[in-house]
Amino acid sequence: MEEMTFGTIVAVFEEIFGRGLFWIMVALAAIVTLGYVYVLIRDHSISWRKFLLAQLSMPIGAIAAVWFVLGMTSSSLGDLGGPVDVVVFLGIAAAGAVGIAILVYTIQSLVRPKQ
């Protein structure tokens, strides 16, 4: 690729999802992240009970992310052909796992603040 600037990457993502959906998704991700930081600062500590449920949800997030990408791209696990594929595959699973963990923790903290 000739010029891989931030603007180019944003432009490409806008085309993948549509401008509206992309920015809604960015906003949602930002809101969840901010919510997470907010409850951490508010509570001054991590609630390990809430973290446990968040951790338990991680495999679900990992599998959902992988399933989504495979489904959207007409591909299957057997298509992984080299080391970089495994790295990308694990990256997608990790992103799904971390994403859902943050989401679950934040929702619990906002819904049931005191435990």
Binding site: T73, S75, G81
Partner: peptide, 21 residues
């Protein structure tokens, strides 16, 4: 020169988007 899934992903996901951009 390697047959890769990531190259397929790029064709499937990013190519048309890059073209439109």
């Amino acid at each position: 020169l390697e047959e890769l899934w990531i190259s397929w992903l790029m064709k499937e996901v990013a190519l048309k988007a890059t073209y439109n951009a």
